[in-house]
Write a protein that binds this DNA or RNA. Structure first.
Lengths: 242, 242
DNA sequence: TGCAAAATATGATATAAATCATGTATTACA
DNA sequence: TGTAATACATGATTTATATCATATTTTGCA
């Protein structure tokens, strides 16, 4: 694991207790003493944009807690087409699904921008879950929320046209990463292909629909920057009932 | 809650300790003493085919553990089109997703055949999860498995043609409910519409594809009975990579 | 038991979205 | 800084699947 330490940079001297993400994270309800334990055993690391945190098929040895940056979680489907099904930000943990199932990873995690993470070894994480009821419940809540989101996505994929799903995806990105200081630019850079792989459609279709949204004055496109000009219109286009 | 007791029938004198489903269920790892608690507080009930256990939008007051029978979990999507995303059998519990999220139900549960369930009150269930690490971990494992299944379904909905998804669905039904004594008839009666709502397609498309499978000698159709004649062929048709 | 209603089946048609094709703009990097 | 590679854009075409229509069978139940 030494190489990880060597790669690690600015944030490994930062304690979990003083971590800005602490109260955004699953550890928000964890006991103080347990934070000390995590702090002792965590291994910090940074990944450049495009680097892989873990790959489908590998064995999980712990969970990753994002300190700063953004990560996508995706499957490799037929003929290598990527399906993105989660977007992660600071405070989020990842890698827990496979770990709790006792599986290998069934998804790959790739940094969407330069990202700093703390790695928490499996044994420690499991022990904490055993010992700390607050943490365990928070974990269950998070799993339940993810499950809900996934089930809604199933329904929408089966029943909604791409136009609605694209609108919904843009709103989801907004929910997840928010806006930049200007209050309208989505605070992440995704390629058109990634947007398509999030919506579950062909890249050309995503591009075409984005162009239509632009023509309709709903969004403004500036390279990979996407500005939401008419949030209400977008919400209406998304046609969300629930 | 009296009316529930009045409706309850054959199985409410059965103890959890002697319940045949005990080791199929999330309670397989629960402590003996806790089974006594559940046994004391459980409320047994039966539902006829087509009856609703709970509805989207209602508040969860506990979880349901299926003693015998079959239940579908589904969303009501646009224009009332149903999307089925889970099939449950004896030993399965349901209603935990909303309960753990602190949400209302986001899905409805309907009996696919006459079904006997034990209702476990929320407070008890939550206390057990707090107190019994084995149970809590089993719960997390189950949530993680469900999440995995849902994520795979998302990828397949986005990327696979209906023919493959129908084949996959038939295999999933087989995994869940198994065969009847003859070893080839799927051990559940679903309408064509329900099959379509499981696959995520139009009813006519499901019917058409089933007819094709029949013409190809892969299945035999006898009303709602579906016999799998060529399981290997079906597996090939499903084109599953993972 | 018979009859209406619902479910199943199948053909014809429409349509959303994928694919193919090609051009233009960006980006990477030698 | 120029050039190749990649991403983006948009039109043309094809295709899978939904929708519509209608016949037939099954089911519920009066």
């Amino acid at each position: 694991m030494c190489y990880i330490r060597e790669m690690s940079q600015t944030h490994d001297h930062l304690t979990c207790q003083s971590c800005l993400q602490r109260f955004n994270s699953v550890f928000c309800k964890a006991k103080e003493a347990n934070l000390d334990l995590i702090n002792d055993q965590k291994v910090c690391n940074t990944y450049r944009k495009g680097q892989t945190l873990f790959n489908e098929g590998a064995y999980p040895f712990g969970v990753y807690c994002i300190n700063s940056g953004k990560v996508k979680l995706s499957h490799q489907g037929d003929e290598g087409k990527e399906q993105i099904f989660r977007l992660l930000k600071s405070g989020d943990i990842l890698g827990y699904r496979a770990l709790l199932s006792g599986d290998r990873y069934t998804a790959s995690a790739v940094a969407l921008e330069d990202t700093a993470v703390c790695f928490i070894p499996k044994e420690l994480f499991v022990n904490l879950l055993k010992e700390d009821t607050g943490l365990a419940f928070e974990m269950m809540r998070q799993l339940s929320d993810e499950l809900h989101r996934a089930e809604m996505k199933i329904t929408h994929l089966a029943q909604k046209p791409i136009r609605e799903r694209l609108a919904e995806t843009l709103l989801f990105i907004k929910e997840t990463y928010g806006f930049e200081e200007d209050g309208i630019t989505l605070n992440v850079r995704l390629s058109r292909e990634e947007i398509a792989n999030l919506v579950g459609t062909a890249t050309e279709s995503a591009i075409r629909l984005l162009s239509e949204f632009k023509k309709d004055g709903i969004v403004e496109l500036e390279g990979k920057k996407i500005k939401i000009l008419k949030a209400k219109e977008l919400l209406k286009t998304a046609n969300i009932q629930d």
